[in-house]
């Protein structure tokens, strides 16, 4: 069985006695843009650092481009890393920061100049070559960090929370920037994030992680529409998540029958607020709260099934707080969960 371009086999990572990642298996293809998505402490950053070589695995194997790099030291791995804090060298100019790795390879003179120039040009910072990092804005620093890694022509580029520190507008710009770089160079890119919006927007494939293991791997559409576990469902915005036992929804008030036949081999069902049908259905609820969100109106209902979050078009007549409402959770509109808990 041939390895994928980047292959993680039964990888176990620990800090001292604390196990952060356990028996992780993952295959990433050449040129893919992959997101590691999960809450803090799930092991996504730890895995990233292990790929970079900053952490030695307790057990397991890492393969890159056909070679076993598990024991290869970080400075020989052809892996690039853009740190969350950018980690620019404060005592060097932008030019020297970008040139750093190239100089270590023995590249100098006109060749060095050409490559650094190209790197700076590709991130639009040619005019800033003589400045020091302290003189740059956050967004500019990040682009220097990106150029610094990219001029090394890495086999894999890792990015630690690349969009978290940016304001909304910069975030959009940087997203476009990363996509452009990936398209133009075809570099295999992995970024770590806790923000599902970023992951859904950027990635070809998303690896959702929890507690040191993988919950689900899939395309953004798959993750968004077909979460396999209650955790993933909750993470990507299914606000109404229920375990299923013997065809009944498990609610805080005990098991309650579904409005239709339950799907086979299902551990739970999850509905997005949009999927809740208001105004008709076998269930009854009282409107506890409502908020206007531009295009839609959100409702929080107190029901025998617990709190239900619903959302309908803003153009439809609103429901008053305190009013009683019939509603349905149609089985057809639910995501089928294979795992619960």
């Amino acid at each position: 069985m041939s390895d994928a371009y980047l292959q993680l086999d039964k990888l176990t990572l620990a800090y001292g006695d604390t196990v952060a990642v356990k028996n992780l298996d993952l295959a990433i293809g050449k040129g893919e843009l992959v997101a590691f998505l999960g809450p803090s402490g799930c092991g996504k950053t730890t895995t990233m650092r292990a790929i970079a070589g900053l952490l030695t695995p307790a057990s397991g194997r890492i393969g890159l481009d056909g070679a076993d790099i598990t024991r290869v030291s970080a400075n020989k791995r052809a892996v690039g890393l853009v740190f969350q804090s950018y980690a620019l060298f404060p005592h060097l100019t932008v030019y020297e920061n970008v040139a750093f790795g190239l100089r270590l390879k023995g590249i100098s003179g006109a060749d060095l100049d050409a490559r650094v120039g190209a790197g700076l040009k590709s991130v639009g910072l040619t005019a800033f070559a003589g400045r020091k990092p302290a003189e740059l804005s956050g967004g500019q620093q990040q682009r220097v960090a990106l150029a610094r890694s990219m001029v090394m022509e890495p086999k894999v580029l890792l990015l630690d929370e690349p969009l978290s520190n940016l304001d909304a507008r910069l975030r959009l710009e940087m997203r476009a920037e990363l996509q452009r770089v990936q398209r133009e160079t075809g570099v295999t890119m992995i970024f770590v994030t806790h923000d599902q919006v970023e992951a859904l927007a950027l990635a070809d494939r998303i690896v959702v992680m929890l507690n040191g293991g993988i919950e689900q791997i899939g395309t953004p559409e798959e993750i968004y529409n077909n979460p396999v576990s209650s955790f993933v469902a909750d993470f990507v915005g299914f606000d109404n998540v229920f375990a299923l036992k013997e065809g009944k929804l498990m609610t805080p008030n005990g098991p309650i029958a579904l409005s239709g036949p339950a799907p086979q081999a299902s551990a739970g069902l999850a509905w997005r607020p949009r999927a809740v049908v208001l105004g008709a259905g076998p269930f009854q609820g009282t409107v506890r709260g409502t908020s206007f969100a531009g295009n839609s109106r959100e409702y929080l209902l107190d029901t025998p099934l617990g709190a239900i979050k619903a959302e309908i078009d803003a153009s439809l007549p609103p429901h008053e707080i305190g009013s009683a409402l019939a509603f349905n959770l149609p089985v057809a509109g639910a995501a089928n969960l294979k795992r619960f808990g």
């Binding site: 791995r77 890393l81 740190f83 980690a87 790795g101």
Partner: peptide
Amino acid sequence: LRSDIEEAAVLLGSS
């Protein structure tokens, strides 16, 4: 002094 600049240097090829 942050320690991540040392990690950055190592990843760029330095011992």
